[in-house]
Amino acid sequence: MTDALIVADHRRGRVHAPTYEAITAAAELSDDKVRVAVVGGNGETLASSLDRADVNTIHLLSGGAEFHHTEHYRGIKQLLTRIDEPTHLVIPHTANGVDYAPAVATALDRPIVTDVTDIEETDPLKLRRRWYASKLEVSIELNDEPAVVTVRPDVWSAASGTGTPAVTHEDITSVDDSAVTIDGFQELGRRDPSAERAAALVVVGRGINDTVTFRGIERIAELIDGVIVGTRPAIDAGWVPRHRQVGQAIGSSKVCLTVGVDGDRGALADIRRAEVVIAVNADSGAPVFEVADQAIVGEPAAVVKALVERLETATDKT
C-alpha cells in the first residue's frame, strides 16, 4: 500500500479547514499514518495546529508568508523526490490547491484525479467523483500510481485527536525568478451580517433570467423576511452583488429557498447547512435536489408567480 502526503492550505497565518478533511481522506488512502507538508507561512505555528492523530510527520518547507504557487510547485516536487516510499499526493480542492496540483502532476508525470468525493478501493486506487455537471457519479480506477488527488471540501470529516509527529525543515529554492509576483489580497466588500444572520435565505440561480421573476423573488424575500443571495451565474448576470455569493461562506439559516439553482458548483455546502431546504428547479435531475427537503420540479417563473400570490394571501398582505 502507498503512503500519502497532504499539502496544507493556509492563509493569513491559519490552516484552512479543508486541510483537516484532506488528512482524513489521506488516512483512508494509506494504511500507515500520513505526512503533511506546509509550504511557507509561519511554519512552527501552523505545525502546532496540524498534530492530528493520523499525522506522523510534518514537513515544514521554507517560503513566503502567503501562498505562492511556484513555491508550492517547487517545494512539493523537491520533497517527493526525497521520500523513498511511493506516496500519493493529496491536496484540498481549493482555489489554491487547483493552482498548483495539475502542474505537480504534469511535472512528475503522474495521473491526477481532482475534486474527489469518495475512495472506493485503495489497491489499485479507485476514486469517485462527480461527472456531467454533478448529475452523475463515476468510479475512476488508476492504472498508474502513485497519483495526485484533490479532495472536495465539506465531504470528509475534519481529522481529530492529537499526535506527536516528527517535524522536519526543508529549504526550497527561492522563487525570485518566478514570472508571478503576489501584490496583495483584497476583501470583496464587508461581511454581510444580514445574510449571515438571516432566518430565511432566498438563493437565486442560473434559472432566473427575467426581471418579472426577479421582482417576484424580491417580494417573496420581503414576505418571509428573507435575504436574497445568489449562486455564481446569478452574480455574473448581475442579479445579485458579489459579496452575496452563496458558496463564499454565507451563514446558515433556518430556511433556504433556492430558485433556479442547479447545484453544480460549490454552493451546495452552504445551502446544506440550512435547517430546511426548499429547492425549485425545472430540471428534475438538478443536483440541488440532493440537499433538498422539499424538491419542487417546476419552471421558476411560474412557481415564483404562484408563490407570491399564495404568500400574499397567507400573510394577508395583498
Partner: peptide
C-alpha cells in the same frame, strides 16, 4: 420530487414555510 401545477406547488411550499415558522402571519 414534488410535481404539479404551479399553484399546487406554491401551496406545498407555503405549508413548509409555515411549519418552520418563517411566515409572518
Amino acid at each position: 420530487r414534488t410535481t404539479g401545477e404551479p399553484e399546487a406547488l406554491a401551496e406545498e411550499m407555503v405549508d413548509t414555510l409555515r411549519t418552520h415558522g418563517v411566515l409572518q402571519e
